[in-house]
Amino acid sequence: MKEFKILAVIAALVGITYYGIEPYAHHIMHPEVAPADFSFKTLKNVDTTLAGNAENGKVLVEANCIACHAIDKAGYPAIMPNADAAASYGVVPPDLSSSGRIYDKNYLANFIFDPVSAMHLEGKYTPESGKQFPMPAYNWMSPQEIMDIVAYLQSVTPKVTEGKETNKATFEAACGRCHDMKYAGIQATTPKDNLKAYMGATPPDLSQYIKSRGEHYLHSFVNDPQVLLHGTSMPRVGLTEKAQEEVIAYMEEIGDSKKAERESLGIWVMLYTFVFAILAYLWKRKIWSEVH
């Protein structure tokens, strides 16, 4: 009985210390932030209840978008190699093939209307800064026209099946123009020098971000970087919740590839240790019965 009392005292002291240096300190250093908003409800420039007409959208896309953007899956290849595109625009413009799938509809519509406010980069592209986002605002278009473009982009996006390939494709489409993923052999499509000039600093390699930032942080951060890192030049990219989950799943696949092995082996090792502990206890009882 006395030994249990001692154990309880030690458990209490260790527990208090642990609480202080882990959950409590974490809570102080990383206060909770507003939950991720996957409907991007603050964006209200375009009436997204309007039904879009994909055929009309195709005409508008051909007239307004493909001069800079590739839509490979719809038969519009890139106009120039990545290095040239980066030199011309600052960053390689995205291929729009999967944009209808990975970007939220409301976000996409409002992005076309005014990219800077949709990305939450008003702090970077101020009139005084003299900087200009490479894509112009299409705020002169009618909401119907914008919704037609969105409808077209959604119509050309290829159907995908869940799994590793899709996770990788989503990561490359959403992050791969600026970020390396060294442990997966992925290099940003925009050359480093252009990126540094365009972003102000070289965007980090994401190989270990699932470990250094963790799923919880990434969940809020990817949804809206300004919330956790005010003033960052990383844009809000407007991923749907599904697409963001695919990105994070891919980061885990690459950054923590042994997770499944760790968790299954853990159970067996603990089971083995438990059997050892029970046998040791029985042996101890036998031995000590002779001396007590």
Partner: peptide, 28 residues
């Protein structure tokens, strides 16, 4: 064997705690 038999018993349960940390709770 007397003293060590008790130590092995304590060690067994301690290792259970240790391996829990190793596999499932290592961020600290």
């Amino acid at each position: 064997p007397v003293f060590l038999s008790k130590d092995f018993f304590v060690l067994g349960f301690f290792m259970l705690f240790f391996f829990y940390l190793v596999f499932f709770h290592y961020n600290f």
